[in-house]
Design a protein around this nucleic acid. Structure first.
Length: 558
RNA sequence: GCACCCGUAGCUCAGCGGAUUAGAGCACUAGUCUUCGGAACUAGGUGUCACAGGUUCGAAUCCUGUCGGGUGUACCA
């Protein structure tokens, strides 16, 4: 294919004086041929001839060396024998198949899931975790070194809200749980909203007072903050462990408060920031009507302050080439400002806001609406429990605990990758926990089934010995799919559209299910069986790797 | 007001560096069963690709406008 591509590119250059890249695309199954290029259509205008004529001429030059055919408006379709395709796959195959070294020597910092410690981990924070983890995996598959950081929401207003609410609750720190914290947070938020609506600010002031106390290192405030962090973090770790995600570091916002404030002073001194009459500090940004607020009028830090400190800390410690912030679409404007500020201040890394649509739920009227703390959210633990319950009841067998978890989490994670990450998702248990159709468990099942077949027939290394004459025609569709994989990993890296890998995994799983529905393996002659088992082994390896990028693990049985 | 995202089958969504006949899953119907693991496979679609223009030999895909939905718009994160 490479050779043919170069030949055609050379031909159109020599013959028509046009430089263009030939790209092969898979053809629809009804059409004759395996791959097609629309090169004739693309250069037709420049050449000044009809695409069909050009395609005919190209084909005439390359026949009979290659099996080419002009189709449709001027496509050039190529057919390859299954055996040739198999050889291509075989040459490229290794235990690292799919991975590449494009990112060698480069380093990325991926920030996720960045949960708010003031309330229990809810489904509202599902996407940063799943998408962030997949992004890390994707970078690694492309040869990057990756450092991950859970940028905990452990400072700022949530702390003040929690401190005020906690004192009102009358409970002691020892008897306070993460669920109490969540309840306090939600109640307080509602009260603050009511207060604001009537134009008062008594409660808001008390919240800010506690915040200031913490930043001034008041003993009581620090004690609260530490307890608050301990209670929440234990809970967060539990959920992340069940989800099968983890980060290397978890410096929270509080870690960067001081550093951020120092930098605000520094840039004020350099004239890059401006102090308002009310004491607040801003950073003017070209192209933005609204400047970036980097310090509140009462002198307290806010998100931008800690993120500034964070950006500087990371630059100094890791010198990342890219920094990926995994956070919802509603924060787009903020990140645009933050990145513009980073540029203005001379930070060199490329910043990416990996954003995603929000999670909706159906209300009583059956209408879609945003999931919000006030209306009551589904907690991650509840969701995981539900999913595991469903797995247990649907899969009658005695699955061990770990397999149940993997299947449940596989369903949840995969459902996040069915659509583009920018598209919002609907929290519908029927879809999130889907065990059939386009789902995680469908893909997991395909791998488990393949492994069983391999184990059953591969006990005497039969896969190593098959007849040289075997034509691989029955495996052609599988082989073509496997050939696509390395390129998919590369192109997904450009767009960070991980859902394309999920689509690939589903296609491959479906192809495999169809494959052994109509192809005999156990009953095949020994010389053929070995070849078929080898293809199945490779398909299992590729599907496992694709799912691994998504963070979907393979259970031992299901 | 301005900015960004979205509008494709009953539902949930792919497809959008233009191109061979617009696809999946769910749901529904009918099949395939001495299972190399049937949690599977096969067959079944009357879709104004929101609407209207434009560019093009060719537009769901690119451009402009309109309508509808969502989000954001400095002391929240």
């Amino acid at each position: 294919m490479e050779e043919l591509r170069e030949r055609i590119e050379k031909l159109i250059n020599d013959k028509y004086g046009v430089k263009a890249e030939v790209v092969w695309a898979a053809v629809p199954p009804e059409v004759k041929g395996d791959y097609a290029t629309n090169i004739a259509l693309r250069i037709a205008k420049q050449v000044g001839r009809s695409p069909r004529d050009i395609a005919m001429e190209i084909v005439a030059e390359m026949t009979p060396e290659y099996d080419l055919e002009v189709a449709g408006a001027g496509f050039i379709n190529v057919s390859w024998s299954a055996k040739k395709l198999w050889r291509k796959l075989d040459v490229e195959w290794s235990d690292q198949y799919g991975n590449n070294k494009d990112g060698e020597g480069k380093m990325a910092l991926v920030e996720f899931p960045s949960v708010n410690l003031a309330k229990p981990y809810s489904v509202g924070h599902l996407r940063p975790g799943t998408q962030g983890w997949a992004t890390k995996k994707l970078f690694e598959a492309n040869g990057w070194k990756v450092v991950t950081d859970n940028h905990l929401g452990d400072a700022g207003t949530p702390f003040g809200i929690w401190a005020v609410g906690f004192l009102e609750s009358g409970k002691t720190l020892e008897e306070t749980t993460v669920y109490d914290l969540g309840k306090i947070y939600i109640d307080m938020k509602a009260r603050l909203k009511t207060e604001e609506d009537v134009g008062e600010d008594g409660l808001a002031k008390r919240v800010q007072d506690w915040l200031m106390k913490l930043e001034a290192k008041d003993e009581k405030a620090i004690e609260f903050a530490e307890a608050f962090r301990r209670i929440s973090l234990e809970h967060v770790h539990g959920v992340m462990q069940r989800m099968g995600i983890a980060t290397d570091y978890e410096y929270g916002e509080s870690f960067y408060v001081e550093k951020g404030k120092e930098l605000v002073e520094k840039y004020l001194g350099e004239g890059k920031f401006v102090k308002n009459a009310d004491g607040s500090v801003i950073c003017e940004l070209d192209g933005f009507e609204i400047p970036m607020l980097v310090l509140k009028s009462n002198g307290a830090a806010l998100y931008a302050t800690t993120d500034l400190g964070c950006m500087a800390y990371r630059a100094e410690r890791w010198h990342p080439d890219k920094v990926v912030y995994c956070a919802g679409a509603e924060q787009k404007f903020y990140f645009e400002q933050l990145f513009a500020m980073g540029k203005k201040l001379g930070f060199e890394q490329e910043n990416i806001h990996l954003w995603f649509g929000m999670i909706d739920q159906l209300n009583e009227a059956g209408k879609r609406e945003k999931m919000s703390s006030r209306k009551g959210v589904v907690l991650m633990e509840e969701m995981l429990d539900d999913a595991e319950r469903r797995v247990r009841s649907e899969f009658g067998k005695d699955l061990d605990k770990e397999d149940v978890r993997k299947i449940a989490v596989g369903a949840i994670k995969y459902s996040d990758f069915i659509g583009d990450r920018k598209t919002g998702i609907l929290y519908d248990p029927e879809k999130i926990f889907a065990l059939t159709g386009c789902s995680g468990p469908f893909c997991q099942y395909a791998v488990v089934r393949m492994k069983r077949i391999i184990e059953k027939y591969d006990n005497e290394k039969e896969s190593e010995a098959w007849s040289e004459d075997y034509d691989f025609e029955a495996e052609k569709e599988v082989i073509k799919k496997l050939i696509e994989f390395p390129q998919l990993i590369k192109t997904t890296m450009d767009s960070l559209e991980v859902h394309k890998i999920a689509g690939y995994a589903f296609d491959l799983a479906q192809i495999m299910n169809r494959y052994y529905e109509r192809t005999e393996i156990g009953g095949a002659e020994k010389e053929i069986r070995g070849a078929r088992l080898t293809v199945i082994k490779r398909a299992a390896a590729v599907l496992t790797r694709a799912l691994d990028v998504l963070g979907v693990e393979i259970p031992k049985q299901m």
